[in-house]
């Protein structure tokens, strides 16, 4: 579903494979690996500023559309005994929430400023739906557990419409 308005939009993004890499412990030595977003809530981005590794839970990193380099990094981590990579394609849906009311829309569910204080991404529950949020230049990006997406969009739309009226 895509909703558009001048104040706030929620747009689904196409994506391919998604991996999660789960470390055996956190914090732990693998954090020292080059290119690893070791800090809690850190996000590693590519040259186009797309998030490629999101450290959203202790030792757990989301790797959307992994490039060959990213796969190599994860494989190396697994080979070093840091943890395991799991193909979770289909578990997460990707959305961009943008526009001047983007933060206000999220504020219907959480306080985005506080949740993202000192971090680039965070695991949250939005309108009862588990998600990972991160800031983007236009607003926020959202990785949403797919079985919840229909209800999430319906509820978000109710709040978005109400913001539109005020």
């Amino acid at each position: 579903m895509q909703t558009q308005s001048s104040r706030c939009s929620i747009d689904r993004q196409a994506h391919g494979r998604v991996l999660e890499f789960a470390a055996f412990s956190w914090p732990q030595p693998g954090d020292a690996m080059v290119g690893w977003p070791s800090v809690a809530g850190a996000v590693r981005r590519d040259a186009l500023n797309r998030a490629i590794l999101l450290h959203f839970a202790p030792g757990r990193v989301l790797a959307p559309d992994p490039s060959a380099a990213t796969e190599a990094l994860l494989d190396a981590a697994a080979a070093q005994g840091v943890g395991s990579g799991i193909d979770v394609t289909g578990k997460w849906e990707h959305y961009i929430i943008a526009g001047p009311d983007a933060a206000r829309l999220l504020a219907c569910a959480i306080e985005p400023g506080a949740v993202l204080e000192n971090r680039e991404c965070a695991a949250v529950t939005l309108f009862d739906c588990p998600a990972v949020i991160a800031r983007t230049h236009a607003g926020f990006e959202l990785w949403l557990q797919s079985s919840y997406s229909a209800d999430f969009l319906a509820t978000a739309e109710r709040f978005r419409a109400a913001l539109q009226r005020t």
């Binding site: 470390a23 055996f24 732990q28 005994g81 943890g83 395991s84 979770v88 289909g90 079985s147």
Partner: peptide, 16 residues
């Protein structure tokens, strides 16, 4: 098992 070699990942939605 913290620190040992086991991880648990929810893949319920990754597989129909």
């Amino acid at each position: 098992w913290s620190g040992r070699g086991v991880t648990v990942t929810d893949v319920t939605e990754a597989w129909a």
